[in-house]
């Protein structure tokens, strides 16, 4: 199980997957749920699958009866649920720390005498 660098699109995909960990979804559906541009989700899914967080399989349907090509469905693995949960929690913690430090800076700025304040143009 390898760790992955977390970018915003990766986090969005993880959050969508974690919302319903048992549900299988195909790439285009997931891209639509997350709001990613269609066609750009596969590097993320491949990275997750490569890290062992996702498992995938081609659906077994009669393509003539369905009238469409086969889809590939993705689902979080049990190890993936844990790793993805931890990654999402770490990201939330970072966001919260940033927001706290931002609030602290704003408070400090407000308490500083007016003559020492920096003006942003």
């Amino acid at each position: 199980m390898s760790s992955l660098r977390m970018t915003t699109p990766r986090l969005l995909v993880l959050q969508a997957l974690l919302a319903e960990p048992e549900r299988e979804r195909y790439g285009l559906e997931l891209a639509g749920t997350v709001g990613l541009e269609p066609g750009t989700i596969y590097p993320i899914l491949v990275a997750f699958e490569g890290a062992g967080w996702l498992t995938s399989h081609a659906e077994e349907v009669d393509i003539h009866a369905e009238g469409r090509p086969r889809r590939r469905y993705y689902r979080l693995t049990p190890a993936g649920v844990a790793a993805a949960g931890a990654a999402a929690a770490r990201a939330a913690q970072r966001r919260s720390a940033r927001s706290v430090s931002g609030r602290l800076a704003a408070t400090r700025d407000a308490q500083r005498p007016a003559r020492n304040r920096r003006f942003a143009w």
Binding site: S2, P43, V46, A47, G50, A51
Partner: peptide
């Protein structure tokens, strides 16, 4: 646009135990 990233991901993560 995302093809280079996809290619990198496949080359980096494929192989035994990865599912790819």
């Amino acid at each position: 646009r995302t093809l280079p990233g996809l290619r990198r991901s496949v080359l980096r993560h494929s192989g035994a135990g990865s599912g790819l």
